[in-house]
């Protein structure tokens, strides 16, 4: 078990945002966290990443309870790239902090950029890249550190439809190839069903887990299939829509 979240509550100024959250992720699982806006999805992700502390409960990564979690990769909304660093330097950021040699860094960065299909964009600054490409750099920046768990906060929310579909497809390809453990926040049910093995549905405030829907369909999936849409409908009904 890579991640175990046990009975986690989170309050902000006395207001309960998350209540009794319990779930776990197995190695190589691709999970989606979805629910109404303001339901504490991002808060839960930040808790898992150790950016904030839970009011009560435990979050356990790979058997360790410590709050500093260097083995978690966090992909922020819109990428949160360092604008003063080129694509390659952005990807190298985490490696440099880990004291990896320049030569190895160069090799790993190249490999990561190839993986997200950004070969040849090493020297581009974030402002010179499109939204989709920035997300790819953000993903490469995290992948290169080989984290035990990758968290993604509405990574494709700001992208247009075409770029979004393409990047989702590449995401599945990448997952099939590397089998990382991923937890992704999205309010797009279609995206959740397309990508993941497990959808964790949160209720509105205070956020509680309504149901964990596991999906056994083969990857890559076809959005127009009947079974695909049956799952979609089920998740939508859980959200009361």
């Amino acid at each position: 078990m890579v991640l175990m979240v046990e009975n986690v509550d989170k309050e902000f100024n006395g207001e309960c945002v998350l209540k009794g959250i319990t779930f776990s992720l197995e190695e190589g699982e691709f999970a989606c966290l979805t629910g109404p806006s303001g339901g504490g999805k991002t808060t839960l992700l930040r808790l898992i990443a150790g950016l904030i502390a839970p009011t009560s409960g435990h979050i356990c990564l790979d058997g360790s309870l410590s709050r500093a979690k260097p083995d978690i990769g966090y992909v922020f909304q819109e990428g949160a790239l360092f604008p003063w660093l080129t694509a390659a330097q952005n990807v190298a950021f985490g490696l440099k902090l880990r004291g990896i040699s320049a030569e190895e860094t160069r090799y790993l960065v190249q490999e990561a950029l190839d993986m997200v299909e950004l070969t040849g964009f090493d020297e581009y600054y974030p402002k010179e890249l499109s939204g989709g490409m920035r997300m790819r750099v953000a993903l490469a920046r995290v992948l290169v550190c080989k984290p035990k768990l990758i968290l993604m906060d509405e990574p494709f929310g700001s992208l247009d439809f075409r770029t979004r579909n393409k990047i989702q497809k590449d995401m599945v390809k990448l997952w099939l190839r590397l089998k990382p453990t991923i937890l992704i926040v999205t309010h797009n049910i279609d995206e959740a069903v397309y990508l993941s093995n497990k959808i964790i549905v949160l209720s509105s405030r205070p956020g509680q887990i309504v149901e964990q829907v596991s999906i056994t369909m083969d990857q890559p999936r076809i959005r127009t299939e009947k079974s695909f849409n049956l799952i979609r409908e089920h998740v939508l009904s859980l959200l009361g829509e």
Partner: peptide
């Protein structure tokens, strides 16, 4: 940008 600071933290800048 606080998000960028958090990004650095999650990448290991503790």
């Amino acid at each position: 940008d606080p998000i960028i600071i958090e990004a650095a933290q999650t990448l290991g800048a503790r």
